[in-house]
Design a protein around this nucleic acid. Structure first.
Lengths: 242, 242
DNA sequence: GAACTGCATTAATCTAGGACATAGGGGTGG
DNA sequence: CCACCCCTATGTCCTAGATTAATGCAGTTC
C-alpha cells in the first residue's frame, strides 16, 4: 500500500520539477516508510528535534507557534508536496509545531540521511535550500499581509492563496476545494479575532466573492477577490518535490 | 584595504562557528571583492535577480517589502555577519529589498559560485541551508509578534532582539548600541503607525526601561524589558559565517 | 433522548491604536 | 541668516477590530 516514488501521484503535477527516473530511484532509497495519521494529530512539536522529515502525500494541516500566554500564531497551511521538519533536520530544533487538520499520509525520511545527501547528491541538497528559501519568501509575504493589511484584505489574500495552491495541486472540483480548517485557524493565521474573522467571511459571502462552509471553499470570482486583497497574485512557482 | 578572510574581525566572535584555516582559505577564493556603500543605498531590489551575494562586514541596514499601495513592511534588521541575497542566489529572485541605513562594508560573492559550492563543498552548502532555515525561523518569530502582540510588547520585543544581536556581535559599549534607524522603520517592522510607535517608545522611556535617541539605544533593564515583551529571550545561537 | 462539547453565528460594548494636525529641533544649502 | 526638509514629539478625535456573551446546531456519549 505504500506508494513507491516512481508511481507518486504528486510527481505527475506540473507544479513539481521533473525528476529523472534515476533521481526518483534515489529518493526512494531515502524513503523509510509511510505514515497515516488522523486529523488532530500533532506531527512535530516546537522545540523538539525530530529524527524524521516528512513530505506530505495527502491531506492538509497547519504550522503554528504557541505563545507563553496561550495565544497562537498560525504560520502556514500545509498542503500535499510540502516538506515538514526541515528546520529540525538542519538546525536541530523546530521553531514551530505542525498538526494535521485532516486525515493525512506522510512520506517519511530519515534525518540521518540529510548529511549524506549534502555530501553525495548536491542537486537534492540544492533543492532543500530552495525549499527553505521559498518558505522564507512566503513567510515574508505573510508578514507583510498581517502587518499592513486590513481584515478584509487579509482574509481575501489568504483565500486566494489557498485556492491557488489547491489549483496547482489539482484539488479543485468545479470551483470547490477542501478547506479542513476552523475559522479560528484562519483568525490565528491573520492575527484577527475569531469574531471579526467570522464577520469578514460573512461579508465576502455577501459580496458574492467567496463562500467557505462545511470544510469546502468556493470562490466565485478569484479576480475580484485578488483585487480586493490588493496583493498581486503570483502564480505558483514550479518547485522541487522531495 | 580589503579584509582577507583569515583576518576577518567577525570570525573572532563566539557567535560564529569556528572554521579551519583551510576552510577560511576556501571562502577566500569565493570572495570577489568588497563593497563600501553609504547610508540610504539600496543593495538589492525586490524582484531582481542579482548576480551577487553579500556578507555584511560592517554597518546596518534593513530588509523590506513595498506593497502596491505604498505601504512598507520591514522584515528584518540587517547586522554584521548576515548573508544578503540568498533568495536570489537560490530561487532566482529576491522576495524583498535590502537597504543600507548606515555606512556599510560588504563582502561580495559571485552567485555563479553557489552551484560549485554545492557540488564540491557540502559543508558550506549545508551552512547556506542552515542560514535559510534560520531566516525562516526568525520570520516565524516576527510573524507571531506582529500577529499577536500589543504595541508595547512588540516594541519591547524588537528592542530586546536588536540589543541581543548587538551584544553577540560586540557592538555594545556600556549598555549602548548604535541603532541607525528611524522610528518609521520600527513602525513598519511591527505593523504600527509612526505616531503610536513614537508614543510607545516614550512610554518605555518613562518606565525607565529603554531609551533610543540619536541613533543610540540604551537599555536599562533588559530583564524587565524582556518580561514585558512576554516572548522568551532565546540567546543567540551560534551560526555559520560565510 | 438527555446531557455534553465543539463550532458557527450574531449582537452589544469597549479600547487599542490609526489618522490628522501641529510644533520644535537639527541639518543643509543658497 | 533664512528657508526648507526630515525627523521626533504630542495632542485630539475616531474607527477597525477586540472582547464578552448569548444562541443555535450537529455530533457524541451513555
Amino acid at each position: 500500500m505504500a506508494v513507491d516514488c516512481s508511481n507518486c501521484p504528486l510527481r505527475e503535477l506540473d507544479v513539481f520539477m521533473a525528476f529523472s527516473a534515476e533521481e526518483i530511484r534515489f529518493m526512494e532509497r531515502f524513503k523509510v516508510g509511510e505514515l497515516n495519521i488522523d486529523a488532530g494529530t500533532t506531527i512535530l512539536l516546537e522545540g523538539s528535534n525530530s529524527p524524521q522529515l516528512f513530505t506530505v502525500l495527502k491531506g492538509q494541516g497547519l504550522r503554528y507557534k504557541l505563545l507563553e500566554d496561550g495565544r497562537r500564531q498560525v504560520l502556514n497551511f500545509v498542503f500535499p508536496g510540502d516538506l515538514i521538519g526541515l528546520q529540525a533536520g538542519i538546525m536541530g530544533e523546530m521553531g514551530h509545531s505542525v498538526e494535521a487538520t485532516s486525515q493525512m499520509s506522510l512520506c517519511v525520511f530519515d534525518r540521518g540521511g540529510i548529511w549524506s545527501l549534502f555530501k553525495s547528491y548536491p542537486e537534492r541538497a540544492y533543492d532543500l535550500t530552495w525549499l527553505a528559501a521559498s518558505e522564507e519568501h512566503f513567510l515574508g509575504e505573510t508578514l507583510a499581509v498581517v502587518g499592513q493589511r486590513t481584515a478584509i484584505q487579509a482574509v481575501a489574500w489568504a483565500l486566494v492563496r489557498l485556492y491557488e495552491r489547491a489549483g496547482s495541486l489539482g484539488m479543485l472540483k468545479n470551483g470547490n476545494m477542501p478547506l479542513p480548517y476552523r475559522q479560528q485557524d484562519l483568525a490565528d493565521a491573520l492575527g484577527l479575532s475569531l469574531v471579526h474573522t467570522n464577520k469578514t467571511l460573512a461579508r465576502l459571502r455577501d459580496l458574492q466573492l467567496a463562500n467557505w462552509t462545511e470544510g469546502e471553499l468556493h470562490i466565485n470570482d478569484i479576480e475580484k477577490l485578488a483585487e480586493l486583497a490588493v496583493s498581486a497574485r503570483e502564480g505558483e512557482r514550479r518547485r522541487p518535490l522531495l
